[in-house]
């Protein structure tokens, strides 16, 4: 279980509070209007933002851990790949941060690239790939890192509807194989309905407790109704 206990983040005028518990081995959608604090919540989990309160993963506090030592892999909206490194190198960083890969590790990279549908693209630079393919490469790296928690910060927001759906399904498929715990930030309700078992609604600086996706949309709160616009 991932527990956020009495989290408070203050950045200038902005203030975000969260006191929530999330089940592991499932997907939780973080839904809400832009500027509400969805991304801030994720960056706090990844260790990039100072906060009060504490975060527990399987009962252990994450507070003192550096970003690289936390049990999380994070995918951003952009800048997930280093533009001057090849796809193989970018993915290989997930295994060895100094890129001194053994033959066995290189084979693992190849397998991961196959899994996300990028077979044969290893030697390319990121700029030679489409936006969707770049995010697939970032996904391959997350796959190799074997971290139990995946944080996805609207990584498919820039893609067209068909491609976004395809990517979400791929992510969910691989997540289920790995038994990972996935937190997906999105402002699209249909993304949440498609792959999330629970939803955390974040608006006006507050993260509401997680609710099962079905009841969440079946009996919308007034804030949710205002957000959905009906």
């Amino acid at each position: 279980m991932l527990a956020l206990k009495n989290i408070e983040i203050v950045q200038g005028d902005f203030r975000l509070t969260a006191d929530i518990e999330l089940q592991s081995d499932q997907t939780t959608a973080i839904l809400g209007p832009s500027g509400g604090g969805k991304s801030t919540l994720l960056t706090a989990l990844a260790g990039f933002v100072a906060h009060s309160g504490d975060i527990f993963w399987r009962g252990k506090s994450l507070k003192a851990l550096a970003p690289a030592d936390r049990p999380v892999s994070m995918l951003f909206q952009e800048h997930n790949l280093f533009p001057h490194l090849s796809i193989t190198q970018n993915v290989g960083l997930g295994l060895r941060p100094d890129l001194k890969l053994s033959a066995a590790e290189k084979a693992k990279v190849e397998t991961a690239l196959n899994r996300v549908g990028l077979a044969g693209k290893g030697a390319s630079l990121p700029r030679a790939l489409s936006g969707g393919q770049r995010q697939r490469a970032a996904l391959a790296r997350a796959l190799l890192r074997q971290k139990p928690i995946w944080l996805l910060d609207e990584p498919f927001a820039a893609l067209g509807p068909g491609l976004r759906q395809e990517m979400l399904e791929l992510v969910e498929e691989i997540r289920a194989e790995q038994g990972a715990t996935l937190l997906l930030v999105t402002h699209a309700p249909e993304d949440a309905k498609r792959i999330a078992s629970e939803v955390v609604f974040v608006e006006a600086g507050q993260a509401h407790p997680a609710q099962a996706t079905g009841p969440f949309f079946a009996h919308p709160s007034s804030a949710l109704r205002a957000y959905l616009g009906n």
């Binding site: 970003p67 997930n80 280093f82 490194l85 941060p97 890129l99």
Partner: peptide, 21 residues
């Protein structure tokens, strides 16, 4: 953030990220 998340630091960070950039 990407580099810190991946644990890219020290000489490896200079060689793989900073210098080429």
């Amino acid at each position: 953030r990407l580099a810190e998340g991946l644990g890219l630091s020290g000489w490896a960070r200079f060689r793989l990220l900073t210098f080429p950039q």
